[in-house]
């Protein structure tokens, strides 16, 4: 039974899930297909020429990375696009006039972004299981990193959605920050294969820890310790949560 004071936030969460579900072709199936194209092209071309971890095909290495990349990008897109659209259409006003608390608002949007991230991630993963003989060694790590990373990116998307005044701002955020950081996070390669400088630089990319920790759940092998990946991801989540709550409690850009 949900306490009465949380029902408002719960309603917002359900609404946000229904929102992306109502356009599932665009929000779920299209990203799954895009990831499968990556898998088809990179996997087929590189499979026979490269072994990343011992005894592992490149396609098997690639799938968890693609799943995580899809989760990250879609969790980000869910909160950011929902917020900017609500601002543009004006319907954010309905939520702002309601007694939903800033924390309830935050949890609802981030919760919905986790659901979308997982929905898209599961879509890619299913193909991995069916077509590429993928197994997971530690499902708990997989699930933990999937949920936590989706939450992080949902929260990052929320910051982007709050501070952006128009779609152009959001596109800049997405194209110049999110996509480069996800592509450079070890989705397509092990960072140990990089030259020294770029390998060191990758350790400053928080997305790398999400991908690496997630991949550990499949192979029990990773570039850095999964404990360190979990710690970095948790700290990053804490930071973006605090930023969001400050923005929401102060009403920056949405109550002004």
């Amino acid at each position: 039974m949900i306490p009465l004071s949380w029902l408002g936030g719960w309603s917002l969460f359900v609404k946000e899930v229904r929102r992306f579900y109502s356009v599932a072709v665009q929000t779920v199936f299209a990203p799954v297909v895009a990831s499968l194209l990556y898998l088809l092209i990179f996997g087929q071309v590189i499979d026979t020429r490269m072994e990343v971890f011992s005894g592992l095909d490149y396609s098997q290495f690639l799938i968890p990375g693609l799943v995580m990349m899809t989760i990250l990008q879609n969790a980000f897109a869910n909160t950011s696009s929902s917020l900017i659209q609500s601002k543009m259409h004006g319907n954010l006003t309905f939520v702002l006039l309601s007694p939903v608390s800033p924390l309830g608002f935050y949890l609802a949007f981030v919760g919905a972004s986790i659901i979308r991230g997982l929905a898209v991630g599961i879509g890619v993963l299913l193909v991995g299981w069916i077509g590429f003989d993928l197994t997971w060694q530690s499902p708990a790590w997989v699930l933990l990193f999937a949920v936590l990373s989706a939450a992080v990116m949902g929260a990052v998307g929320m910051i982007a959605g709050i501070v952006s005044d128009k779609f152009d701002h959001l596109a800049a955020f997405q194209n110049f920050i999110i996509i480069p950081l996800t592509f450079l996070s070890g989705v397509f390669y092990s960072i140990q294969a990089l030259p020294g400088f770029w390998e060191a630089a990758s350790h400053f990319n928080p997305f790398f820890y999400m991908v690496d920790g997630f991949r550990y759940g499949f192979f029990n092998a990773s570039d850095v310790s999964p404990g360190l990946s979990l710690l970095v991801t948790l700290v990053f989540f804490l930071i973006v949560t605090v930023i969001n709550l400050i923005l929401l409690y102060k009403g920056v850009k949405i109550r002004d």
Binding site: L7, L12, V14, P99
Partner: peptide
């Protein structure tokens, strides 16, 4: 649906 959702915000 909008009216249902808005009702939900007010529990």
């Amino acid at each position: 649906e909008l009216l249902d959702i808005q009702s939900g915000y007010f529990a």
